[in-house]
Nucleic acid binder design. Structure first.
Length: 345
DNA sequence: AACTCGGGGAA
DNA sequence: TTCCCAGAGTT
């Protein structure tokens, strides 16, 4: 048996029954692929069900408003995926009469659809012989063929794409593509791969040369930056607060948060008092206190957010105030949603 | 080519 | 703690 035939054979014996594996509907496949970008299946699966329940078709998704989509996406991270998802749904409905493109070339033009996702949809739904290259596939190919070129270099992406095309199974690209990913996830796992009972262990170069744990090679990760967030949680006599959409560049675009004072380092109450007017207009403040004595360190991929929530009570009515009890209607970062959940007036 | 964009689970 | 997950878009 060839490499690809062994992959397919292993897959047919070991595949998990996942919700999007019982369909070739491009809407369902597209939705699942966007959600699973850089996301574990266990984390993404409940969101897939939520979206299919709320938006059974691409028309339903297109007719929603962005805030509704972001609210359902809340907690899944990488929120540009949700914004692009919504934009693409509208594009498909308005420009393509509700039909997704049926080729790699057509699919990759959609916002949020890159090389991997275009290949996945084209092969899963339309049998187009295009290899998928995700983290699992990079690992399987790098190990089996003993390739030490960094997978996240430009040379690496070209090399692995060519290699993947050479070894793919054109006759059953749907099962082959899903199979090599499943194989990478379960058998050729990043840590403690099961080499002893692996159906490919006789031809695996990394195993023969004892380099399984050195492959794949990945270029250095950038370092994490520390930021210092001070959220001003206003509260007037009607139990309303100021809750505003985060605009501009950077993290959490179009999600909601309290008025934010970002500082170069951690600050105390006196420092804060001098800066309040830069963030909010308040005629009168009757009481200020710090909600969390220890800063909450919310960790993102590239940033650690050292966060303090300051409670500011006022008798003046807050402009465009929102009742605390209604904050959970708005899409918010996990950091904010966790605070709202824990904070009791 | 390097940076940015979340959150969580496993070891 | 560190790694990395069915990656894509921007600079």
């Amino acid at each position: 048996m060839s490499f690809s035939e062994k992959i397919i054979a292993w897959y047919l014996l070991n595949k998990r029954d996942l919700p999007w594996r019982n369909t070739r509907n491009p809407y369902n496949i597209w939705l699942s692929e966007i959600m699973l970008q850089q996301t574990r299946i266990a984390q993404g699966t409940p969101y897939y069900h939520k979206f299919i329940d709320n938006f059974p078709t691409v028309e339903d998704l297109a007719n929603a408003n962005e805030q509704e989509v972001l609210k359902l996406w809340q907690g899944l991270g990488y929120y540009s995926r949700a914004r692009n998802l919504h934009a693409t749904a509208k594009k498909v409905v308005n420009d393509f009469d509700g039909e997704f493109p049926t080729t790699y070339k057509g699919l990759i033009k959609l916002r949020g659809v890159g090389d991997y996702t275009a290949s996945a949809i084209a092969s899963f739904c339309f049998n187009e012989p295009e290899p998928v290259l995700d983290g699992n596939v990079f690992r399987v190919l790098a190990r089996y063929f003993g390739v030490a070129i960094p997978i996240n270099s430009s040379k690496g992406s070209k090399y692995f794409k060519e290699l993947a095309k050479e070894v793919m199974n054109i006759g059953n690209i749907r099962d082959y593509n899903q199979g090599i990913m499943e194989f990478g996830s379960i058998q050729c796992a990043p840590k403690n791969p099961k080499c002893s009972n692996c159906p490919l262990n006789d031809g695996c170069i990394a195993l023969k040369e004892d380099k399984v744990h050195q492959l794949p090679v990945k270029l250095k990760k950038t370092k994490v930056k520390a930021r210092y967030f001070n959220y001003l949680v206003l509260m007037d006599d009607d139990s309303s607060t100021s809750f505003i959409k985060r605009t501009g560049k950077g993290i959490w675009q179009n999600l909601f948060e309290f008025p934010l004072l970002e500082t170069e380092k951690e600050i105390n109450l006196e420092d804060l008092k001098n800066e309040i007017s830069k963030v909010v207009e308040l005629d009168e403040v009757s009481n200020i206190y710090l909600y969390n004595e220890q800063p909450i360190i919310h960790k993102l991929s590239h940033q650690h957010l050292h966060t303090k929530f300051w409670i500011l009570k006022t008798h003046a009515k807050i402009k465009e105030g929102i009742e605390f009890s209604k904050l959970d209607k708005y899409p918010a970062p996990v950091l904010i949603a966790d605070f709202i959940k824990a904070f009791k007036i």
